[in-house]
């Protein structure tokens, strides 16, 4: 293993649009999917990641390198994650959450999910629909019925037309 020989092992990852990336094994094994490949001895050569595009993979690798450079200090890791995600738009976050799920990286998955949830927090139904482009496919009667069923969730929430 890398630590024993003194020279860091690098892995080559290939995105689904055929971009190649080199990444230190020590950083890449943050992904349980990749770690399993390394442990099973099938991480030699190029590792194809069929569900991740080049742009997203580049971003995930930046994260892998950044977070693995921080020693075991949960506070610092958290602030790195916050900073890393602060300038990402929703489009990118959606790609990242899919990639994190595919690569089985729970820390990134949690951070991105929490970030997306944060956007929805304390917002009216109408606001969330507009923000994410969610099409309301209920008929007015259906919507009223669903609302009635979930009336308890609206207690204490300012009601306006948006709700």
């Amino acid at each position: 293993m890398a630590a024993e020989t003194g020279t860091p092992t690098t892995l080559t990852l290939k995105s689904n649009d055929d971009e190649l990336f080199s990444v230190a094994e020590s950083a890449a094994i943050l992904s349980v999917t990749i770690r399993n490949m390394v442990e099973d001895g099938c991480a030699g050569g190029v590792i194809p990641l069929d569900n991740v595009d080049g742009k997203t993979l580049a971003s995930v690798i930046t994260y892998m390198n950044g977070i693995s450079a921080i020693p075991a200090d949960e506070e610092k890791k958290k602030s790195y994650r916050d900073k890393f995600l602060s300038d990402k738009d929703f489009e990118t976050l959606a790609d990242m959450v899919l990639a994190a799920n595919y690569l089985n990286m729970s820390c990134l998955m949690d951070a991105v999910s929490a970030k997306i949830a944060q956007v929805m927090e304390k917002k009216s139904v109408g606001w969330v629909r507009r923000k994410f482009g969610i099409e309301n496919d209920y008929t007015p009667e259906e919507e009223a019925a669903v609302k009635e069923e979930h009336k308890w969730t609206f207690e204490g929430v300012e009601t306006d037309d948006d709700n």
Partner: peptide, 9 residues
């Protein structure tokens, strides 16, 4: 739970 009002999805 409030998200159930968003759409049938």
């Amino acid at each position: 739970a409030r998200t159930s009002v968003l759409s049938s999805r």
